[in-house]
Every structure is written in C-alpha cells, then in structure tokens.
C-alpha cells in the first residue's frame, strides 16, 4: 500500500511471501506455489499446503494462460489512487493450473468481459521495483 511520486496507484507491500511472488513477476515470470508433497498449486501464497499439510513447496512456472472467472467493475471512485481509472474492472482470472488471482485485463473495456473469456499474462513494470502481472485477451493465432 505504498505509492511513489510518479506512480499514483497503490503498490503491494514487499514483504514475506508477497515479496517472493512479486520478485518472480519482476523477472516477467508468473509463478505460483506448488506443493512438493502432493503437487497442488496454490494462490494466494501460504506457509503450508492446505491440501496435505506439507511445508515444502516450489515456485512453479505458470503457463500464464487462463480465463475470466468473475470481475468487479468500479464505477464510482473508491480509492483516490484509482480515481482517474474509473470505470475499471478488477478481474478474477482462473489460470490453467487451477489457481485464481485478482488482476486487470488491459485491452478491453469492462462491459466486454465475459465468463470464460480466454486471457494470457503480460507484465506491467509499474515502477523500477514493482511489476504487476496483468492479462490481455488471448486471440486465436
């Protein structure tokens, strides 16, 4: 929840497991925790595998491909940091690995979002230190 002089929007606090998650994003890799014992993917990051109880995990590379699961379109500014962005949709994307995350889909307006819309990850280097994973519509090649 920090901002910098140039970047008006909120930034994630770089601590603990969040720092690990966003550090991979800075390298333009979308990685999630994958349990070393039972192989279950998870997000948001956690100390233990809620499936099997193991403390062991790897940061496994995601395909970056997924689809729109739901979204919240903000039409009235709720946070001063995002006042210039309305209307914007905070989208839940379900990755092919099964995990879901909050993000933005950058290349279509909120009213064109649909459940199941295929999307793929892109990386937005919003400051020198922070890169946010976002998504764009996946179109047939």
């Amino acid at each position: 929840m920090e901002t910098t002089a140039k970047y008006k929007r909120l930034l994630p606090p770089m601590r603990g497991l969040a720092r690990d998650f966003y550090s991979w994003c800075k390298k333009h890799e979308l990685r999630f925790q994958k349990c070393s014992a039972c192989g279950t993917w998870r997000h948001v990051p956690r100390e233990m595998c809620p499936q099997c109880g193991s403390f062991d995990y790897q940061w496994a590379k995601s395909s970056g491909r997924g689809q729109v699961f739901s979204w919240a379109t903000t039409t009235q500014p709720m946070l001063p940091h995002f006042a210039d962005d309305v209307p914007y949709a905070t989208v839940i994307v379900e990755l092919d690995e099964g995990v879901r995350m909050a993000t933005w889909v950058v290349d279509i307006p909120p009213d064109q979002l649909r459940i199941g819309l295929p999307v793929e990850v892109i990386f937005d280097d919003v400051t020198e230190d922070v890169t946010l994973p976002k998504f764009r519509v996946r179109r047939p090649a």
């Binding site: 929007r9 905070t90 946010l132």
Partner: peptide, 20 residues
Amino acid sequence: EYYMPYGLAVPAQWFAWLAT
C-alpha cells in the same frame, strides 16, 4: 498484497466479485 494494487479495497467491490 493482492487486491489493492488492482484498485479493490471496499466491500462493494469485493462482494461485486460474488454478485457478478
């Protein structure tokens, strides 16, 4: 860590996920 960087911070927004 995971919602506010994408502009989501109040109940009307997070329950809009469910409602949508």
